[in-house]
Amino acid sequence: MSETQQPRAEATVTLTNDVGLHARPAVRLTQTAAKFSSRIELALGNQSEWHDAKSVVKVMRLKAKQGSEVRFRAEGDDADAAIRSIVDLVERHFDG
């Protein structure tokens, strides 16, 4: 018995931008996540609940503040690229 394993990737980042995942960063994150076909989720720090990173409403509801640790995980063919792109976005302080 073998299950078909989809590629997976994950990363943990610390929000270093001024406002954390406020409205505008949440929009940028959602737009970035939507470019990938993989399922992409995020979770706050030590919380066990995962949220759809492609839903701007769910991302905003997290109210992740500056200094928060956020975990991302992706599953799908472009999981690696998706996580790299998201980490890059966070490190650029959600700019552009």
Partner: peptide
């Protein structure tokens, strides 16, 4: 935001109503 990702009409309506 949802529209900007190229999502279809149903998904864009759902994003507003969510």
């Amino acid at each position: 935001t949802m529209a900007s990702t190229g999502a279809d009409l149903e998904a864009v309506v759902a994003a507003a109503e969510e």
